[in-house]
Computed example of a mutant assay.
Amino acid sequence: MTSFISGKVVVITGASSGIGEATAKLLARRGAKVVLGARRQDKLDRIVAQIKAADGEAVSQSLDVTVQAENDAIVQLALDTFGGLDAVFLNAGLMPNSPLSALKTDEWHRMVEVNVTGVLNGIAAVLPTFIEQKSGHAIATSSVAGLKAYPGGAVYGGTKWFLRDFMEVLRMESASEGTNIRTATIYPAAINTELLQTISDQRTAKGAQSLYERYGIAPDRVADVVAYALDLPPDTTVNEFTIGPANQPW
Results as ranks from 00 to 15, higher is better:
Lys160Glu: 06
Gln248Asn: 13
Asn71Ala: 04
Asp45Pro: 03
Lys148Pro: 12
Asn239Gln: 11
Ala227Ser: 08
Trp161Arg: 01
Tyr150Pro: 08
Arg182Lys: 15
Pro96Ser: 09
Thr236Arg: 10
Ala22His: 13
Ala229Phe: 07
Glu240Ser: 14
Ala218Ser: 13
Gln202Ile: 12
Tyr212Trp: 13
Pro233Val: 07
Leu94Asp: 09
Asp235Ser: 14
Asp220Leu: 03
Gly83Val: 02
Gly118Phe: 07
Tyr150Gln: 14
Asn115Leu: 10
Gln61Thr: 13
Met95Asn: 04
Asp165Gln: 08
Ala223Cys: 08
Val169Glu: 02
Ile5Cys: 14
Val114Pro: 00
Gln202Asp: 15
Leu63Gly: 06
Thr198Cys: 09
Arg214Asn: 13
Gly244Asp: 00
Ile5Val: 15
Asp80Met: 10
Gln68Tyr: 11
Val59Ala: 10
Ser6Phe: 02
Ile199Val: 11
Gln68Trp: 01
Ala149Gly: 15
Gly216Asn: 12
Ile139His: 09
Ser135Met: 06
Asn121Cys: 10
Arg203Met: 11
Glu213Leu: 13
Gln76Pro: 03
Ala87Lys: 02
Ala54Ile: 10
Arg30Glu: 12
Val11Trp: 01
Pro99Met: 15
Asp220Val: 02
Arg171Lys: 05
Gln76Trp: 01
Pro128Lys: 01
Asn192Phe: 09
Thr204Lys: 03
Trp161His: 11
Asn91Trp: 00
Met111Trp: 06
Val144Tyr: 13
Ile47Asp: 00
Ile5Asn: 05
Gly178Lys: 00
Asn239Gly: 03
Val67Ile: 06
Asp224Val: 03
Gly18His: 00
Arg171Asn: 07
Ala53Thr: 15
Ala145His: 05
Leu211Ser: 07
Leu163Val: 02
Ile19Pro: 00
Arg30Leu: 14
Met172Pro: 05
Ser143Asp: 04
Pro219Lys: 00
Gly136Val: 05
Ser6Asp: 13
Val75Asn: 08
Gly153Gln: 06
His109Tyr: 12
Gly18Ile: 05
Ala38Thr: 13
Arg46His: 06
Asp55Gly: 03
Ser200Gly: 14
Ser174Asn: 00
Arg110His: 08
Gln209Ser: 08
Asn192Trp: 05
Gly207Glu: 08
Gly37Asn: 10
Asn91Ser: 06
Ala38Tyr: 04
Lys160Gly: 12
Gln209Cys: 08
Thr198Phe: 04
Leu90Tyr: 10
Gln50Asp: 09
Leu230Pro: 09
Ala54Glu: 15
Asp231Cys: 06
Tyr215Ala: 04
